[in-house]
Design a protein around this nucleic acid. Sequence first.
DNA 1: GATGAATGAGCCTTCATTCAT
DNA 2: AATGAATGAAGGCTCATTCAT
Lengths: 218, 218, 218, 218
Amino acid sequence: MTEVLREKRKGSGMIKNAELTKKKIMSAAKKEFAAHGFDGARVDVIAQRAHVNKQLIYYYFKNKDYLFVESLKECFATLRKVENAVNLEENSAFDAILKLARATWDYYIKDPELIYLLASENLMHARHLKEYKQEFLNINASWLENTQRIIEKGKIDKSIRADIDPIELNISVAGMIIFSITNQYTLSYTLGRDLTSKEVRKMRIQSILDTIATWIKP
Amino acid sequence: MTEVLREKRKGSGMIKNAELTKKKIMSAAKKEFAAHGFDGARVDVIAQRAHVNKQLIYYYFKNKDYLFVESLKECFATLRKVENAVNLEENSAFDAILKLARATWDYYIKDPELIYLLASENLMHARHLKEYKQEFLNINASWLENTQRIIEKGKIDKSIRADIDPIELNISVAGMIIFSITNQYTLSYTLGRDLTSKEVRKMRIQSILDTIATWIKP
Amino acid sequence: MTEVLREKRKGSGMIKNAELTKKKIMSAAKKEFAAHGFDGARVDVIAQRAHVNKQLIYYYFKNKDYLFVESLKECFATLRKVENAVNLEENSAFDAILKLARATWDYYIKDPELIYLLASENLMHARHLKEYKQEFLNINASWLENTQRIIEKGKIDKSIRADIDPIELNISVAGMIIFSITNQYTLSYTLGRDLTSKEVRKMRIQSILDTIATWIKP
Amino acid sequence: MTEVLREKRKGSGMIKNAELTKKKIMSAAKKEFAAHGFDGARVDVIAQRAHVNKQLIYYYFKNKDYLFVESLKECFATLRKVENAVNLEENSAFDAILKLARATWDYYIKDPELIYLLASENLMHARHLKEYKQEFLNINASWLENTQRIIEKGKIDKSIRADIDPIELNISVAGMIIFSITNQYTLSYTLGRDLTSKEVRKMRIQSILDTIATWIKP
DNA sequence: GATGAATGAGCCTTCATTCAT
DNA sequence: AATGAATGAAGGCTCATTCAT
């Protein structure tokens, strides 16, 4: 047995393997839940895709509900991380809002799992968010806080209207962005324009940014 | 058995009864699909709520998929009817767009089934819309046409910007409206503001109309 | 198709078939529960033995617990019927008690399902008897009442001691009888005497009757 | 690592710890098996209650069956020890039988695990007693021998009837005692008298002793 | 048009057990 | 001696659907 292999087996190697297994399960779970919603998702499929024994899912996550909750938590956390990574210090409030909107759009386009999980969760009237409340504490606060801070800044640098409500802004921006993605399949069909194509998407985010810009302009 | 009774059973009376049964099933189906999504919906529950034998559902609608398709069709049709009922003749293009947006909001608030069916349908990547294409022909055309006509009018009455793309407009307006409703449960939780309350909703539609207005203003 | 077959299919035939199915399930259930206890019993096995689709069990009995409750109820009812069928009118109290004890023994030897179901039920601290209380109302009253009536009679005909408590009598008699049957397997092993053999059983009931007789003798 | 610590880990200290672990497992196992029967008992629960890793159970006892067998063995052994501890030398055969019955009753009331294990074992037709025969050799002989010795004595001191069969006596006594305990839950329900209360129990054992006494009286 | 009976496939979950260190 | 990770088999139950009147 080589040094490397021994390294991998002993010491922290075992622990890492367990974590790896958990990660594989989480990754497969997020995909499956996003693709089929909570009810449509199959634990068997998740196990297969994660290349692990099905029972391990229950060993690590107790049941399907907790697995969904963990998936949701991780998606939320990733989004918040992305948002917080956007450097807004040197931008005016006006620019900051648009920059954040674009960053959000880019993130969702690249990794739309969260919005599908949320779509499913809303179909169930936020059952998991309510039943597993304590699991989500402190995860979602930053979203609103970010916007509030920018708007405060705007009151000083006068780059945006003074009467913008942060919650309304958040919903409108998120609405335009997320709806374009979650409903792309029915919209593409209904409108006869393929919303998944690169050019159309470029147009879409431009439209959104334009809409926001004219709205918040002082 | 008296003549009258026989009449009721065999003649056109029977047909009316059949239609009634179908309607009861459809009504229960729309509620169940809206409340739980396609996968979460239970045929048994639909039968119970419609006060009919479960087998009748299969007799009239062949299977769960067709039942969903019919539910979706009827919801679409109702929305289009509502939209077309809005009299826009005497309004400027600017006013027409806002009037239509408010009518759409009012309708969805009162009867949100369609948007939940669509949410579920998008979770499945518009599977039914694609697989049962022919069923939806000619139902959805009017949405875009309405907007196109208004924008054409705007080019004459100059009440709106000349470069508004009807599709982008439709998506943005629908996005802000529908997202506020479909995601109200998770948003209420995430933002700490109860989006189902009357006052908050008033604020929301005002915000949306304001956003649209500033955007389309010439 | 012959008249007979048609007869069987139409009219009350269908109903009878459903009842027959239920009976087949009940019969198989009682056997399985008696042989393996509640926890050890397998729904699959019950379905197989009843030659019915497994789902039918859930269709008719809702779940394993209710199936057990129904089994228990039916066994109780059968025993009570047997007890009440014993004609005690012309016997003295003394003879009546012995006659009843022997009838009980004969019944349990022939059809020991009830005592195995009770053994299992006691292992679970009478969980079903408690949780499904209302199901058992009015089933078990007659056991005690029978004995009470006999003892009252004894106070008149002086054929038995005056201070016999009906409950103590019932428990002692039932204990000697039932224990001999439920524990026959471990006893046969522990005592080195095959309690399932006919002669040994004859001896056993004679012993029991002798014990009771000397006890209740005035 | 100091010498002392090493001593504790490797030397006889380890062995003592191992015995302790085994004891903790056995204690938890007996409780769990008694409370739920063999099929209803959960290895996980036993591990938890014993505060040991589940795998240790397999390390020490091979599997669930052996664990049950060991539990049964230990319970049998304890009972025999209790029985043999009763000093019967100076008593007449008559008194000895009653004394033994009362001691048995007291023991079972205080520690009813054995009779629940036996109840479960009988539900499985004494499967373990048969399959693991050799494990039980020489454990159960003394029960019968005790009684036989007393009866022999009775033939001399004439304190009891001459025709008492030791096996019949054992079964009858054990039956009245054990049945009162194993079936206390269903009996309490069926008879409407709480058999777990102290006074009722006092009455019960008096009844039993009275029954035996009148039976064995010469 | 309407109904009760019946079915097969599959789903989430549990359990005893073993692997590897 | 002790432990965390992993597994296969099965168990109770549900669901959409069909059969047979």
